[in-house]
Simulated scan of single mutants.
Amino acid sequence: MSVAGYEDLLNGPVKKYLELSQKIGGDVAAHSKLVEKALQIQLQFVQKAANRSAPANQSEQVSLLAPMSAQIQQIQEFRERNRGSPFFNHLSAISESIPALGWVAVSPTPAPYIKEMNDAGQFYTNRVLKDWKEKDKIHIDWCKAWVQTLTDLQQYVRQHHTTGLVWGKTGIAPVGIPPPPPPSMPIEDVSLVINDDRSALFAQINQGEDITKKLKKVTSEMQTHKNPALRAGPAPFKAPAVTSIKSVLPANAPIDKPSVFTRDGKKWLVVGN
């Protein structure tokens, strides 16, 4: 369906744009040949994507997009080489909006991206309309055909590639993705626990006045306004008394003194215990 939809696009407004470009002739006709090739390259890209998995890495993606990128660059360079052309606004309308073909590398909003590029090109199509509306209607139809081409491309992408280019096969998950978390409690088990708790709660509520039968009666001894002793609160904390070391030792206990080294001439004497 994706490939067939793109072929319908080529057989519709794109075909009309190419026919009118040839009628205008000159630089517009030559430029349209480059545009036609770019659209054919994109068709081949869409066909390839429909039959393979997504690129495994960025390097492979760049390689796949290289032909289309190079063709878009040729379209824009043609405009730069022909700034003195009487159809410069025609060339600019295409060159400013042709990056819309880059939607294949845009995610998750490829369709809005195409609209942005279409709007950028309409700055120059409006100039063409202003310059040629009184001279030749074919230029008016040419502008409408190109704007319609990008409008239909946007609709095609919105229908078949809503959040980005869809690849035909599921690729292997990139290296480095952590394994899935361990299975949690089944949903039905959780619901049973919740239901049990709710059932117990509702059963207690439904007891009505009977629920108060299990409560203990508060006596006058347990009421603070009738028993002042309860208002005093617990006694403040007192740190335990610290007993000195001297009080532990007996009065006549010998006290060890550290040994002292003294020198008597060439001899060392040790004085102490």
Rank of each mutant, 00 (worst) to 15 (best):
P13G: 01
P13V: 04
P13E: 15
Y17P: 00
L18N: 04
L18F: 07
L20N: 01
L20I: 02
L20M: 06
S21R: 01
S21Y: 12
S21W: 07
Q22W: 09
Q22N: 09
I24A: 11
D27I: 00
D27M: 08
D27H: 06
V28S: 03
V28A: 04
A29E: 15
H31V: 05
K33S: 11
K33T: 05
L34G: 00
L34E: 10
K37G: 07
K37I: 07
A38W: 04
A38G: 04
L39V: 02
Q40L: 13
Q42I: 08
Q42D: 12
L43E: 03
Q44E: 15
V46P: 00
Q47E: 15
Q47S: 04
K48S: 07
A49R: 03
A50R: 01
N51Q: 15
N51C: 12
R52S: 10
R52N: 07
A54V: 03
P55I: 03
N57K: 03
Q58W: 14
Q58D: 15
Q58C: 09
S59I: 09
S59E: 14
E60W: 04
E60M: 06
V62W: 11
S63M: 06
S63K: 11
L65W: 06
L65R: 02
A66R: 10
P67D: 12
P67W: 15
S69I: 13
A70Q: 11
Q71E: 14
I72E: 06
I72V: 07
Q73S: 13
Q74S: 09
I75Y: 13
R81I: 07
N82S: 06
R83Q: 13
R83N: 13
S85M: 05
P86M: 11
P86I: 13
P86Y: 14
P86W: 11
F87K: 01
F87V: 04
N89M: 10
H90V: 09
H90C: 10
L91M: 10
S92Q: 15
A93H: 00
I94Q: 05
E96I: 03
E96P: 00
I98G: 01
I98V: 06
I98R: 02
I98A: 07
I98H: 03
A100S: 07
L101N: 01
W103T: 00
W103H: 02
V104M: 12
V104E: 07
V106T: 09
T109C: 11
T109N: 10
P110Q: 04
P110G: 01
A111G: 06
Y113S: 08
Y113E: 10
Y113V: 04
I114E: 15
K115V: 14
